[in-house]
Write a protein that binds this DNA or RNA. Structure first.
Lengths: 113, 113
DNA sequence: TTCCTCCTCAACCAAATGGTTGAGAACAAC
DNA sequence: GTTGTTCTCAACCATTTGGTTGAGGAGGAA
């Protein structure tokens, strides 16, 4: 929906550490310390990454005593794929039209608006 | 392929201005000034955005006198969709397995590695 | 109670990001 | 030639980002 959320989702996945977190969570929910173990950085740093994923709506967190298990929200991926597919399809169609055109005539691309 | 390029592609699309540029280019190649007109910022600023898209491999540029028409490269989108689809599918499968499991027994999630 | 684990908050820092202005190269047109 | 357009480069600035350390709250276990 909002351009803002789309921006946050793309920005969240632009970081390799956060993509690894996502790939871990795809295998099952996990706590902060569990998510931190594979990474060579402080727990606080991973906590910040998790927060970014949460703000983007890619991750939700529940409560289990002092633990806060993180859970991957797969639906948000659809936001991206829809956006991507739209422009990929347009670009491909345009490419095919151009291709067809080239087979007939030698067009002079009129650049003006 | 490289995690680096994937990071650059996601980062490039995290900005609304750059997404608008992509959506414009999906309709056809365009020069810098043409791309700048709709945006309330300097040509140099748009040039920087275009550079980011270029570095991510989303855009290529040709040469026409002093003009440098930008062209959208649709193939790069596949990089993203492949990455996304992979984890979306995993997460969905896991969800369905968990769902099936819940219908049989009451499982205690063993959090330890 | 005391102790240990999990997590968060705050302050700080260096580097990257997104914008600006000004100068100038390359080229077409007059 | 001069003039105007397109684009790039460099310097600068404010804000954001991605990390650190230190302190401390909440809660289970001894």
């Amino acid at each position: 929906m909002s351009a803002d959320q789309l921006s946050r989702v793309f920005a969240a996945l632009a970081d390799p550490t956060r993509r690894e977190i996502v790939s871990t969570l795809a295998l099952g929910d996990a706590t902060l310390v569990e998510l931190s173990e594979p990474h060579d950085m402080s727990v606080q740093a991973v906590s910040k990454h998790l927060r970014v994923l949460e703000d983007a709506g890619l991750v939700t967190r529940s409560r289990d005593a002092q633990r806060r298990p993180a859970h991957l929200e797969a639906e948000v991926f659809d936001l991206m794929t829809k956006w991507i597919e739209r422009y990929r399809r347009e670009a491909e169609q345009r490419y095919q039209r151009l291709d067809a055109l080239l087979k007939e005539t030698k067009p002079k691309r009129g650049a003006k608006r």
